[in-house]
Simulated assay, not measured.
Amino acid sequence: MDNALYVGLSRQMVLRRQMDIVANNVANADTNGFKVESLITKEQPGAPAFTLGGPRPVKFVGEDGVARDFGQGALRRTDAPLDLAVEGQGFFKVNTKDGERFTRDGRFRTDDTGRLTTQAGDTVADDGGGEIVIDPQKGQVTVAPDGTLSQGAERVGKVGVFQFANLSVLEKRGGNLYQNTSNQQATPAESAKVRQGMLEGSNVNSILEITRMIEVSRAYESTSQMMSAQADLSRSSISRLGRVQ
């Protein structure tokens, strides 16, 4: 196998990964708070299989991580009192059995003890990191734009909304949750607004992602054709060389 086939194979591996990411974006077009992702690529210099007067090193294609667009998704009204959306930069903090997590998915409910939780049962943190407990006997819950929860004239707590100076420290951990993978501390998102009775939709542009899917598919097919043509050329060259000898 010559250098062109090695380079083509590296390109195909990246295209397969890119297709997986695009397909995941399309699948999550209706997921609350989902953030669209894209693949980052880079050149990977490598020693050539064999070359005579060719480039050294040969430039292969490699994956260099996944970029995530944390831009605002559209807000959709549900009128459910415990559905909350963050308008602006910021995340709700969730306390799970595996530690702190952050999310933009505000589909909250209360458990048997009145604690405010996610649909998975993880507790939603207040602005100090503690739990928020709601007494159903005290009436309807109202949430102010600063996250303050009230039942009538009584203040129940305040939903914490936190932000990061560098969003690249957040990594997906499943369940629409992110984990802080650094020592960077989350700080209160003072400019963010909490909207009650609303949910933030995905910021995926379905038409754009389907267009990307077509582009990736065509690029993969084009690379396959190039590799096939290169293999045919190599076989032809070897055959001719054998007849000459």
Rank of each mutant, 00 (worst) to 15 (best):
N25D: 01
S191Q: 14
G65K: 09
Q44C: 00
G160E: 10
V94Y: 07
E87A: 15
P48I: 01
L199G: 05
G106S: 06
D30Y: 07
P45E: 01
N203M: 08
L177I: 01
L199C: 04
A4D: 06
G152I: 11
N205S: 02
F60N: 12
A229G: 14
Q72V: 00
R17P: 00
R76M: 14
S236D: 06
T78N: 01
K138S: 14
S10T: 10
T211A: 12
I207F: 08
V204G: 09
P81Q: 04
A219Y: 03
G242S: 09
G114R: 08
T96M: 08
G175W: 00
V216N: 11
E131D: 13
T78S: 02
V36K: 09
Q44I: 08
L233T: 15
G71T: 03
D2R: 10
V216W: 07
I210T: 07
R107Y: 01
G54T: 03
S150T: 15
S150F: 05
G99C: 10
G8V: 03
A153G: 12
T31K: 03
K172V: 08
M19K: 02
E100T: 15
A192M: 06
A165T: 13
G152R: 11
G88S: 12
Q185T: 12
D98R: 15
I21S: 05
P136T: 01
D112Q: 15
Q140S: 10
V124A: 11
K59M: 13
E209Y: 14
E200W: 02
Q140D: 11
G129T: 07
V133N: 13
E63I: 09
G128P: 07
V7E: 15
E63G: 09
A27R: 11
M13Y: 01
A144Y: 04
E209S: 07
A153L: 09
Y6L: 13
Q140Y: 00
G175V: 03
A120P: 12
K97A: 15
Y220S: 03
T142N: 08
R56S: 09
V156F: 04
N28Q: 02
D105T: 07
I40R: 12
G8C: 05
G129E: 00
D122F: 13
Q140A: 13
F92Y: 14
S237W: 10
L149H: 04
I134Y: 09
F91G: 03
D98L: 11
D112Y: 09
P188C: 08
T118A: 11
E190N: 00
T142V: 06
A49G: 12
D122A: 12
F92H: 07
P57A: 11
G121R: 09
R109W: 06
I21G: 03
G130K: 14
V169H: 01
Q196H: 02
E154M: 14
E87N: 15
T31E: 03
A74Y: 05
T41C: 02
